[in-house]
Design a binder for these strands. Structure first.
Lengths: 199, 199
DNA sequence: GCCAGATTTGGACGGAGCGTACAAACCCGG
DNA sequence: CCGGGTTTGTACGCTCCGTCCAAATCTGGC
């Protein structure tokens, strides 16, 4: 397509939360009105509605990526970094509640699914998997399939966040993050509480 | 609406996997052709496409519900029952791969989201939450917010399953279930492996 | 067997909304 | 002032949805 100017991109991403919340089914005119960009201009830069959704998705993924990458590369114990990842993901969802909800409940529409999966892999599971693999190699984590573990953690956080968004309308990230982080770390089992080292 | 006859319901649910796999964007005619039910008849029983999606969703939920309820009410230790829940959920996804994929990636379309959430709550988190709460009360599980725990488990299984479906095209439930079950039970931490009692 | 009502189906139609075409305006460097 | 890229309004065709209707078929009560 064509390179999207900063002004257009900015207006779109800012308006995303606005029109995403009224997503009964999102008309092209809605996007135009909410973003203040005329329909014709939108078609000048994007090939269609799905392309716009894809663009917004990519923008959100990029934002998530930097947040998660920072959390993954932060110092501290593996447990702290995993906790950071959980918190970063939930923070992202809390910051753009409508967009997050739209995205997670319409994954199949913002482009081809495999591309989507690849993007998520790189931006989302990726950081989780890095930290998990590292922790297993270093002996801090019980050895196990790192890829599956990463996807499971990611899925748990996303769905728990989504559920809170849908039923409560907003996201109180702090408590949720703490519960999830502790659950992941210690597991369900009651016996022999592992003393997770927190730095 | 009108009560859907068994013949219609059967044809639809059987065809669901067929037309769900070609879901670039699902036309009404596709549904009609794939299911062998004429368009006019579909409109006689359903108010529209979303209504059909909703119906299929409900049917799948019902199927999931019985599977999960059975697993939740089975005998054995809490750990066994949780493992059974995980396996039941993945089995369901493996049995209807295309439908599961369509559903999870289009949650926002098969009806109002809050209804959807309520249905999922009842059929999916519900059984998890029952077993989890019971396990915590009985001392087998570490006490913790049971609702959050249940949603997290459910989300982890669903997303891990979905990821496998999208990237590999099918679902090898056994290994995945075992990994997830063990992960949930023991947690990430390496120290002091809790000896999960398996009956 | 016959009738009234419900079900099943085909075909035609109106309308929504998408994406395209195009032309007029505008900006901007040379 | 000119040529090319950008911005925008407007109009159009097309696809597909959902509705309407009428003919055909089925079904149960009598």
């Amino acid at each position: 397509m064509r390179e999207v100017p900063e002004a257009i991109a900015g207006k779109l991403t800012e308006a995303a939360d606005a029109f995403a919340s009224s997503f009964e089914d999102l008309r092209m005119d809605d996007i135009a009105r909410a973003s203040g960009i005329p329909r014709a201009t939108l078609y000048y830069y994007f090939s269609g509605k799905d392309d716009i959704l894809g663009f917004l998705f990519a923008a959100m993924l990029a934002e998530i990526r930097v947040g998660l990458a920072a959390a993954a590369d932060a110092g501290g114990s593996v447990r702290d970094r995993l906790g950071g990842l959980v918190r970063a993901l939930l923070t992202q969802m809390a910051t753009h509640p409508a967009a997050a909800q739209l995205l997670l409940t319409n994954l199949g529409r913002a482009g081809k699914l495999p591309d989507m999966a690849a993007g998520l892999q790189e931006a989302a599971y990726g950081p989780f998997e890095r930290v998990v693999a590292e922790g297993m190699a270093g002996g801090e984590l019980r050895p196990r399939d790192a890829a599956v573990t990463a996807v499971a953690l990611f899925g748990a956080v996303c769905i728990a966040g989504l559920q809170a968004l849908v039923t409560e309308g907003h996201l109180e990230g702090g408590r949720l993050a703490a519960t999830l982080e502790e659950l992941f770390w210690a597991g369900l089992a009651a016996e022999q509480p592992p003393t997770g080292r927190r730095t």
